[in-house]
């Protein structure tokens, strides 16, 4: 069984973790086109490359980020999400009419 290094808890069996999908930037839901939104929700590049992913250490409820190569399945690094997300996110008011 594979192991992964949790930034909070250290090296653990992969069975202690829950995959949370790729880190993706959400387009502005109130101004993007339907296609942009559909791409965000449904599509993934699925390339053989390094991907940045969400992982949860289930026993401690701790979310973190892992960079993993999809070809070799090697986990290159893991780190606290505050590296990527440090500022409060606000959403703008919806446009009166959303155009596709």
């Amino acid at each position: 069984m594979k192991m992964m290094n949790c930034p909070l808890n250290g090296l653990r069996n992969i069975s202690e973790f829950v995959h949370g999908g790729e880190v993706k930037e959400m387009p502005d839901p109130n101004s993007c086109s339907d296609k942009e939104w559909a791409d965000y929700v449904f599509f993934s590049d699925n390339a053989i490359s390094v991907v940045t992913e969400w992982w949860l250490h289930a026993p401690s409820g701790y979310w973190f980020i892992a960079e993993r190569h999809t070809g070799s399945d090697e986990i290159l690094k893991t780190y606290d999400p505050s590296v990527l997300f440090s500022e409060r996110v606000e959403f703008s008011a919806p446009a009166t009419e959303v155009k596709a």
């Binding site: 829950v18 949370g20 969400w54 949860l56 409820g61 979310w63 999400p81 997300f85 440090s86 500022e87 409060r88 996110v89």
Partner: peptide
């Protein structure tokens, strides 16, 4: 739901504590 909530707030950084 709890996992989703904590994951969202990891990104949003709102001042709220979420407890299951």
């Amino acid at each position: 739901v709890y996992r989703d909530m904590t994951k969202w707030n990891t990104q949003w950084r709102l001042d709220v504590d979420i407890l299951n």
